[in-house]
């Protein structure tokens, strides 16, 4: 910082990019920043991995023996086949916590002032965050799939159906990270954001078909579980992976059209929560 080098400062005019192209590039720049942060704080990813793997092992070896799936054979592997898609779906929903804590941190640490003073696209800070979460979710799902295969989980469908199953999972995860974005913007303290991101996930994922068949629940709870957006994805993925027990009959409408219901819910959540989040972000601080 000396006056001799001060003269070397060149005129750098900001480029003129507008519209969608700018939004895409700004989101990409912010996403890259968040992925870089991920590599510098690997603990987050590690704990993100441990949790679902632990769930798989607990449900398979501790509780699996006590749960019987109607329509399945007495095969000890049957519950595993049924369970794994549920764990996949539950895992992707944890993107909520990452997004809510990350955005709350950005909002409180003053970095948001830097972003808001730059001529960048309006939603890019949030879109960049959710895209980085999608990268993280993908990594976790890959590792989880390997663990699942090791303990005996198999798919029984065409390759493209399996791919579609994973895409539906990632779409759900992406939708949930937008819910997380709104929570992070509303809570504004990273600690509160983590708990606020997680508390409602447990009822949501447990009052569903993810871990036990809905038909075993009390009658009044069954419609809730069937119409739970989360159940649709679980059912859709089981269907696409060929993990629906052969003898299990599904009569509820959302279960019969699970793939479309799942995609529809996810897209609806993205549209709604993205709009709300971007609006809230622009109004934050004044």
């Amino acid at each position: 910082m000396t006056s001799t080098t001060a003269g070397a400062i060149g005129t750098v005019a900001p480029g003129q990019r507008t519209g969608l192209l700018q939004a895409a590039r700004d989101s990409w720049v912010v996403a890259r920043r968040n992925v870089r942060r991920m590599t510098r704080i690997p603990e987050v990813l590690v704990f993100g991995l441990i949790q679902p793997v632990m769930f798989v092992l607990l449900f398979t070896y501790v509780m699996g023996g006590a749960i019987t799936v109607p329509g399945a054979t007495a095969d000890p592997h049957a519950y595993r086949q049924y369970l794994i898609p549920g764990i996949f779906a539950q895992t992707v929903t944890f993107a909520v916590a990452g997004a809510s804590a990350g955005i709350a941190e950005d909002m409180t640490k003053g970095l948001v002032d830097r972003f808001r003073s730059l001529p960048m696209a309006r939603g890019a800070v949030l879109t960049g965050r959710t895209l980085a979460d999608l990268v993280q979710t993908t990594l976790i799902i890959v590792v989880l799939a390997v663990v699942a295969v090791l303990i005996g989980w198999r798919t029984h469908t065409a390759f493209w159906e399996v791919i579609c199953g994973f895409l539906l999972l990632l779409l759900l995860g992406y939708a949930f990270s937008w819910i997380g974005a709104l929570i992070g913007l509303s809570v504004r303290s990273p600690e509160a954001a983590t708990s606020a991101g997680l508390v409602w996930l447990f009822p949501l994922t447990f009052i569903s078909n993810a871990f036990v068949p809905v038909s075993t629940m009390p009658g009044w709870l069954q419609p809730v579980a069937y119409w739970n957006p989360f159940s649709a994805t679980v059912q859709a993925v089981r269907h696409l992976f060929g993990n629906v027990p052969a003898g299990m009959v599904q009569t509820a409408w959302p279960m019969q059209h699970a793939v479309w219901v799942s995609a529809g819910w996810s897209i609806l959540i993205i549209a709604l929560f993205r709009t709300l989040s971007v609006r809230k972000y622009r109004r934050a601080n004044g």
Binding site: D26, R36, F115
Partner: peptide
């Protein structure tokens, strides 16, 4: 969590 260089590069890119 970004380096000094990454911070400034990001700001430049967000200035388009």
């Amino acid at each position: 969590y970004l380096t000094g260089r990454e911070n400034l590069q990001m700001v430049g890119e967000l200035y388009q």
